[in-house]
Amino acid sequence: MFSINTLSPSRSDYLLATVLRLCAVLSGVVLLLVVVFLVQEAFPALRHVGLVRLFTDDSWHPTEGLYNLLPMLWGTMLVTIGAVSLAAPLAILSAMFCQFYAPVSLARWYRRLIELLAGIPSVVYGFWGLVVLVPMIGNLHPPGPSLLAGMVVLAIMILPTIALLMEASLAAVPQEYLHGALALGLRRWTMIRNIVLPAARSGLFASAVLGVGRALGETMAVLMVCGNVVQIPHSVFAPVRTLTANIALEIAYAFGTHRSALFASGILLLLIVLGIVVVADAVKPRWTYGE
């Protein structure tokens, strides 16, 4: 009796298999290393300061031994929520435009435009926000660098990515559904609302979740436009500092427990992303339609 996967016995094949497997293992090891090093570096903070104090200290004053990450966590969450709620509707509309409203050639051009937008580096978005948007907001309601600026810049930044993904999920709706709807004489919007959007909702949701992930993790754009004041903001015009910006600002000169606390905040980010991945995965099957 022979069973699956008897490797072909040629020598180069064994070599190939070995080398390839080595690659796979190495790729897997990368994640392991990331986790191991983050934890190892964060360990002193977790031991000396403790998990609880990272959220209950009076403030974030590492030089005075105060390590409260909560204001930054708030900053991250508010900027993210704002950005995604601004970007997602525009992205859905963009996707609908490409799939159902635009003439074919126009849709091609628009898609290319969105692709180009998706390739613009975040530091350029941040720079644009800094020199264009922040002064405008400053005129409206000083100081200018603010939660609002962060939300808008991030929204513009993640919009292309979400729009492209959403268009792909609209395009994945089986043609038969559409033909069926058209055969019934349904209008465009009626068809989209009743057939396309429900059929594509898992994909749309997943795209939005990916947008959340990108917004959470963005550093440069928020670093440049948010003002970086450690506080829980009381209005959208107040400056805030996100977890990512905090790391970028302080890691250069931090040492000892302070440095370690920054690594702890990195782990916090990692855990949030992990949570998002898990949630998206768990929700997805139930949202899946058809097949």
Partner: peptide, 22 residues
Amino acid sequence: DMIPRCRVSGALHLDHLNLMSP
């Protein structure tokens, strides 16, 4: 061999070559 989870048993010969031999 190429098909995942496929298993064969019995005897099979090509000339005197035992095709079941691993």
